[in-house]
């Protein structure tokens, strides 16, 4: 095995181009488990810890450009206002020690259906910024990033530089089912973001299909129901029948399996429950914010 230690982003891309089989290692919280248990014996490890750019984030007008290696702890501490869904999801990852090392770049690299960043990214709206020495930068819409169980759209010579995530323009929630609060891989998970600016709702489902997915039919149904009822303007309570229909469509978007963590039917059921709850929570918070601004006007 060789340990490659690029000191800059350009050097890292050059190294990846020269050794396309090299395994990047950032926080190591996925890679080292595989090496410790001899599930993986890469020819080259490509250490990304020295590349300072990957640990930085920039808050722009509409998006946050989140460096691939920014640890979950920093997201929770610094980006709660801009990325509330991702900050909540980050807080559910493993333990403080793991959150101090692991980040979204590694979560995307592994592309596990259970990765906690994915539902939050799908709900917020995001693009993955990847680069190669040969072809420069390209942006992969988050919906196109997950291509199969633990597979993603990266080419062998590419590295993830950052994720460009839509800044929240409304309330967001993240919910996860597990056997306890810490150190738990999701049985299933659900992210929801209200986007009042475009009057749309987006979702993300984790651990209930071969890849993280959006519940697109549920989103379309809810977008139409909210528009028809004038809900965005009148701020009324969402009727139970609309919430139920939304929850049922979210359950229907799942394509789960039975495994040690839970059965397929439990996952489908739990996703519906989380969909209804997160819709209620976010909508209540939207109504509260609306009343506050109206009261002030």
């Amino acid at each position: 095995m060789d340990f490659l230690r690029p000191a800059s982003w350009e050097e890292a891309l050059a190294a990846k181009a020269e050794h396309p089989t090299a395994v990047p290692i950032a926080g190591g919280t996925d890679v080292m488990v595989e090496i410790n248990f001899d599930h993986r014996r890469p020819e080259y490890l490509l250490d990304l810890n020295r590349i300072g750019d990957l640990y930085e984030w920039e808050v722009g007008e509409d998006t946050v450009r989140l460096g691939a290696s920014v640890p979950y702890t920093k997201i929770m501490e610094n980006l709660r206002a801009e990325l509330p869904g991702l900050a909540l999801a980050s807080h559910t990852v493993a333990s403080p020690q793991i959150r101090n090392r692991g980040g979204v770049g590694g979560n995307l690299g592994t592309a596990s259906p259970a990765g906690d960043a994915h539902p939050a990214l799908l709900a917020a709206g995001a693009e993955v910024e990847v680069a190669s020495a040969a072809r420069g930068t390209r942006l992969i819409p988050i919906d196109e990033f997950y291509t199969g169980v633990k597979r993603n759209a990266l080419q062998p010579d590419e590295l993830i530089r950052a994720v460009r995530i839509q800044k929240a323009d409304g309330p967001q929630q993240y919910s996860k089912v597990g056997t306890r609060n810490a150190m738990v891989i999701a049985v299933c998970a659900f992210g929801l973001a209200l986007h009042p600016r475009t009057r749309t709702v987006r979702t993300g489902i984790g651990s209930a299909a071969p890849t993280p997915v959006r519940a697109k039919a549920a989103e379309e149904f809810l977008n139409a129901a909210l528009a028809e009822g004038g809900f965005w303007d009148n701020g009324k309570i969402i009727t139970p029948s609309v919430a139920k229909q939304f929850a049922d469509l979210c359950s229907a978007a799942c394509n789960p399996i039975d495994d040690v963590r839970g059965t397929a039917s439990y996952r489908r059921h739990a996703v519906g429950v989380m969909a209804r709850r997160t819709l209620t929570w976010t909508w209540e918070s939207y109504r509260g914010a609306r009343r506050a601004t109206e009261g002030a006007a």
Partner: peptide
Amino acid sequence: GVPVCSCLVAAGQVE
């Protein structure tokens, strides 16, 4: 300064 699991840090990363 940051608490981490040393079993998940590659030796070369601590240089």
